[in-house]
């Protein structure tokens, strides 16, 4: 994949929409737009009014890409088809984000922007391990299981 100026501009614009989303959620509802927390809150015990809000947020999160694909044409994505890799990765992301209390949105966007030391430390760790995994471990795994993984 070749990186171009357009990707940087789309990245900035998309990022700004994500930041706007989190800003609205914070200033109106007083809540953190952390997706692992919102999704985790749906399947764990908790008050039902919060769950309705979580469900509506997730509905919007799923609905927007669907509507954009309907309006502007399909969004092509590249995902590994290897079921074992998907299952192990999904379990790790699910457990890890709940144990660590946040993911890229909660710690990365909402926490870092208020200079929360916990969020900065978490982001440095998951980013560092993510880079090491994708750069060193993943190519070895793909070599063993075969396939290009995308």
């Amino acid at each position: 994949m070749l990186f171009e100026l357009n990707d940087a501009l789309m990245g900035l614009a998309g990022g700004a929409l994500i930041g706007l989303s989190a800003a609205v959620f914070l200033l109106a509802n007083g809540r953190i737009a952390g997706i692992s927390g919102l999704v985790g809150g749906l399947i764990e015990k908790g008050e039902s009014t919060a769950k309705v809000e979580n469900l509506l947020f997730v509905a919007g999160l799923i609905g927007a890409p669907f509507l954009m694909a309907a309006a502007f044409g399909p969004t092509m994505i590249g995902v590994t088809e290897h079921v074992g890799l998907l299952v192990v990765s999904g379990l790790l992301v699910g457990i890890g984000t709940r144990i660590g209390g946040g993911c890229t949105s909660g710690h990365g966007v909402c926490g870092m922007s208020r200079i929360s030391p916990r969020s900065i430390v978490a982001t440095v760790i998951y980013l560092g391990i993510g880079i090491a995994t994708a750069s060193l471990l993943r190519p070895e795994i793909l070599r063993i299981i075969g396939g290009n993984g995308a």
């Binding site: 890799l85 992301v93 984000t97 660590g100 430390v121 998951y126 391990i129 993510g130 995994t133 750069s135």
Partner: peptide, 19 residues
């Protein structure tokens, strides 16, 4: 915090998906 972030980073780097 540290252990959770490590597990998350490992899962993230394997497939490229976060929540």
């Amino acid at each position: 915090l540290i252990g959770g972030a490590m597990l998350f980073g490992l899962g993230w780097g394997l497939v490229g998906f976060c929540p």
